[in-house]
Design a protein around this nucleic acid. Structure first.
Length: 896
RNA sequence: GCGAGAGUGGCGGAACUGGUAGACGCGCUGGAUUUAGGAUCCAGUGGGGUAACCUGUAGGGGUUCGAGUCCCCUCUCUCGCACCA
């Protein structure tokens, strides 16, 4: 099939060569309609043919070469869901333009692609369609790979990897064992989110509005169970610090990461128990209010709760409350509309400063995950504590007063949270509360009651998933020896493929004796394999390293190659992955460095987060959201009701406001789709899909196609332009525009990724060239040489954006080879020089006139010309000129 | 509530360090070509006014010879985090 197209094209070119001989010069010379070839722009034939040629020539292959400067460009790899969607198209188009541009600039470019191939959808699809996750996944990969190739992306497919391949995850298992040895991976019993339908633990981010993200009707339960964790908290401080050392990252991503890490300075303070137990430790950032702490609250999960109520008369009441609270999901429990509730434990502890006995409560709003899971409550200066105190009639004690007023506890209607002066605070009375933070912390330390500390919001990364389609955690449970790591030489622990999926959605792994039954590496007795698999974010935390050496068999990473390519110079992906994946990758890179696998800490030097692709929704009162196909003339095709046009929101299957990239490719070709994705808006902003916009992009491609084919003979036969030629207007202007465009496009791509303005600039050049050809008088060889240079520049500058049509036109014009191997053009300063300059004339800051002056004019001459201008004269008549501002070569402002 | 970003024609968006606001594209209007439609080409297109000119970048104030751009306040929208002690 492709071969046929190939042959067709070759024949076409022969035909063209023949035609050129038939053309006859008309009276005006070589211009006019001669050489006009009836040849249509047919992207559907032309594009696959060029894709095949690129592949055959291996133009996208990246080879390590220490003598050349490398450039590693990476787009976030996709989950192989079956088909590419428009978000992929946009993401990968942006990346492809940069990759092609950098290659043309002479960089040794690495531009790989692969598959984030483990994950739940494969298991669900397998159950639904009675197939196997592996089969489903690999079929999807084949489909999507074909689609990506059809888009013409410049990937080095020799480096392709799929994370579900044992050759990939075996190294992840090895790194896990190394982390385990260093204490960076551990197992603990803890409270987790559990979805009954998925039969697995969910990460916090997979819980939406208290329900499972995949089962919006299924409330997430809190379950206490054993899970594996990676010690990301060990690196929290370093990752936070390096947020300041990533100038190539968008501020908003960095601020999200800082937010997520959530460092806060404060103090850990011990409140001694009244009774046999030792003390309860709290974390606070407000040790300045310590004298006002009149009660204590524990999180329901706090282990001391069980301890201190044992045998007391409150026991049942407290246990009921704890059980009731823990049954609520975290979202409901922590929602701001959920009332603050608690129960008295019947026990007291001492405020370490006032030595007063204060009651201990269990409260629903105290988070076990944050700080120590216990808080000192200061109702006078914390709104939550205030509400709680009022509800349970607890003591209030003011310890900060505003500078010019008194606070009376009984009269307070809300907590006083502003700054002020300390009162009722022993030796600290009279100090400003913020200044007392340090002195109180020091005092605590001296007295052995507490110490300064920092607390992080970030928790260790729970990576256990009770799922089948993931990388097995390489551990063994032995009754005698406990948890024993798999021997490194026994890796990989391969995921068994021959088993039946369970209809309830649970993992089949625990029920497969061929997998679970093993022997303990330590004592040799019967033992059981760990059946949890790893969170798929683990795979995506190092795939970019493995691209450097996907075939390496002696370890996770080949140091020589990884050192050459890493770090990623430019990473591009959706903002929706901004926190977790990027945070995990930064953590994992640090781990790999500490384990000696890699030399860098930060994996991504520059990050571009592209905006979402959006489109208006359409709905019908009867049938809900409608696909574009289900709408005709603003009416629902099923019931004829008028459609309701909704907001412009992110494209999603559930809202049915989607366009299928494949349909667009089949209709317009890949180049048009690529061009529209770039032209419609800058990459970091959201893109609003517009069918008319796509048509516009297609029209532009047809316009350059005609510009070349309509004038092919003249363009082809004219001699190359000698840059030293002295040109007259209007030729000079076309030539100047050519160089201005090179400058503008280079700047837009290199420094700003503003492809939309780069394309605009080329459009301007095409417009000017067309205008010259349509209206220009001069039609000799000199003119054609200038036009040829303009047209060739157009083609080269557009080649990263629309690589197929440009390679084709390049060849039609008689060039050999691919534009990807052509050098990116330089502009010449001399070509930008103009003889005259346009000067804007203002009077009192308002534009009144504009004049042309010789470029060589001095400021004095320009000022004189401005004052002599008729319109300026009219506006300053009868007034005295107070001041004249002359902005070099640009503007004159006359102040009267 | 906290943090970040944004607000410019009928629409998507330009205007990089303060210096012609609206590049480029879409749409629309008129004209040419065409049997017609499409495609293509030419002209026009922020609002008001015959014109000179006036007015205009969410609203208000300020700095400046000059503000879409800088500063302060207000409003609206989007995103992230959120009972974080």
């Amino acid at each position: 099939m492709l071969d046929n197209i190939f042959n067709t094209l070759d024949t076409l070119e022969d035909a063209l060569a023949g035609l050129s001989r038939e053309s006859e010069p008309d009276a005006k010379g070589a211009f006019g309609s001669t050489g006009k070839i009836d040849m249509k722009y047919n992207p559907l034939e032309l594009e696959p043919s060029w894709q095949k040629r690129w592949e055959k020539a291996g133009v996208f292959k990246a080879v390590e070469d220490p003598s050349r400067e490398k450039y590693y460009l990476l787009e976030m790899f996709p989950y192989p869901s079956g088909k590419i969607h428009i978000g992929h198209v946009r993401n990968y188009t942006i990346g492809d333009v940069v990759a092609r541009y950098k290659k043309m600039c002479g960089k040794n470019v690495l531009h790989p692609m692969g598959w984030d191939a483990f994950g739940m959808p494969a298991e669900n699809a397998a159950i639904e369609n009675n197939t196997h996750p592996a089969k489903w996944t690999y079929e999807n990969i084949e489909n999507m790979k074909a689609q990506l190739k059809r888009m013409g992306f410049s990937y080095d497919w020799d480096r392709e990897l799929a994370t579900c391949d044992p050759d990939y995850y075996r190294w992840e298992q090895l790194v896990f064992l190394e982390m385990y040895e260093k204490g960076l991976a551990y197992r603990k019993k803890t409270h987790v989110n559990w979805c009954e339908k998925c039969q697995t633990v969910l990460a916090n981010e997979q819980v939406e509005d208290g329900c499972c993200w995949r089962h919006p009707e299924q409330e997430v339960a809190i379950k206490e169970m054993n899970s594996w964790f990676l010690k990301i908290t060990d690196y929290a401080e370093d990752m936070l610090e390096y947020c300041e050392k990533l100038p190539g990252w968008p501020d908003r991503v960095l601020s999200m990461q800082k937010n997520w890490i959530g460092k806060s300075h404060g103090a850990a303070i011990r409140f001694p128990m009244v009774g046999p137990e030792e003390a309860i430790e709290v974390f606070t950032t407000r040790q300045d209010t310590l004298y006002g702490a009149t009660f204590m609250c524990l999180a329901p999960e706090h282990p001391m709760v069980q301890e201190i109520i044992k045998g007391s008369s409150q026991e049942k009441e407290v246990l009921d409350f704890v059980a009731r609270t823990l049954k609520m999901d975290t979202f409901m429990r922590t929602a701001d509309f959920t009332a603050k509730e608690g129960v008295f434990t019947g026990r007291y502890c001492l405020n370490p400063m006032t030595r007063e006995e204060i009651p201990i409560f269990v409260a629903n709003f105290v988070l076990f995950d944050y700080g120590t899971g216990a808080i000192m409550a200061v109702p006078t200066h914390d709104q939550r504590d205030f509400e709680f105190a009022r509800k349970y009639d607890l003591k209030l004690q003011v310890v900060i007063k505003p500078e010019d007023a008194e606070l009376i506890e009984e009269d307070m209607t809300e907590a006083y949270v502003d700054q002020g002066i300390l009162v009722n605070s022993g030796p600290f009375n009279g100090q400003r509360n913020l200044e007392a933070l340090d002195s109180i912390a020091d005092y605590l330390e001296e007295q052995g009651i507490g110490h300064k500390t920092v607390n992080y919001r970030i928790r260790d990364w729970g990576i256990s998933r009770q799922r089948y389609w993931g990388a097995p955690i390489p551990m063994i449970h032995c009754d005698a020896c406990g948890i024993v790591p798999v021997e490194k030489e026994d890796l990989p622990v391969v995921l068994p493929l021959a088993l039946d999926m369970r209809p309830n959605g649970g993992s089949p792994l625990p029920f497969d004796p061929s997998f679970t039954e093993t022997t303990c590496p330590k004592c040799g007795s019967k033992a059981r394999r760990e059946t949890d698999t790893m969170d798929t974010f683990v795979e995506s935390s190092w795939y970019f390293d493995r691209y450097a050496c996907p075939d390496y068999q002696d370890g996770p990473l080949d140091a020589t190659r990884v050192d050459y390519w890493l770090p990623v110079d430019q990473y591009i992906g959706g903002i929706e992955h901004a926190i977790l994946h990027l945070l995990y990758s930064r953590f994992y890179t640090r781990v790999l460095k500490d384990l000696g696998h890699i030399g860098i800490k930060e994996p991504f030097t520059n990050l571009l987060t592209q905006g979402m692709v959006c489109k208006a929704t359409q709905a019908c009162s009867q049938h809900g959201y409608l696909f574009p196909k289900e709408v005709e003339n603003d009416r629902c095709t099923r019931c004829g009701a008028e459609v309701i046009n909704g907001n412009i929101v992110k494209m999603s299957k559930s809202k049915k406001n989607v366009v299928d990239p494949q349909e667009l490719i089949d209709r317009y070709g890949a180049d048009t789709v690529r061009m529209f994705c770039l032209f419609a808006s800058p990459p970091d902003k959201d893109l609003e899909w517009s069918e008319q916009g796509v048509e516009g992009s297609h029209r532009f491609l047809q316009r350059i196609w005609r510009l070349v084919t309509d004038n092919l003979e003249d363009l082809k036969t004219v001699k190359g332009f000698d840059e030293k030629t002295e040109l007259q207007e209007p030729l000079k202007s076309v030539h100047r525009k050519t160089h201005e465009t090179i400058k503008k496009v280079t700047d837009d791509i290199e420094n700003r990724f503003h492809f939309n303005t780069a394309i605009s600039a080329v459009m301007e050049l095409v417009n000017e060239t067309n205008q010259f050809l349509n209206t220009g008088e001069q039609r000799d060889a000199a003119a054609w040489a200038v036009v040829r240079r303009a047209v060739e520049t157009t083609i080269i500058l557009l080649s990263p954006v629309v690589p197929h049509i440009t390679d084709h036109l390049w060849q039609l014009m008689g060039h050999e080879g691919f534009l990807l191997n052509a050098p990116w053009p330089d502009y010449q300063e001399e070509a930008l020089v103009t003889e005259t300059k346009l000067i804007i004339l203002q009077v009192n800051g308002k534009v009144r006139s504009r004049i042309e002056v010789a470029a060589s004019s001095s400021d004095q001459e320009i000022e004189a010309a401005a004052l002599a201008d008729e319109k300026v004269q009219r506006h300053i008549k009868g007034k005295s000129v107070k001041r004249v501002i002359v902005v070099q070569q640009k503007l004159v402002n006359v102040v009267v």
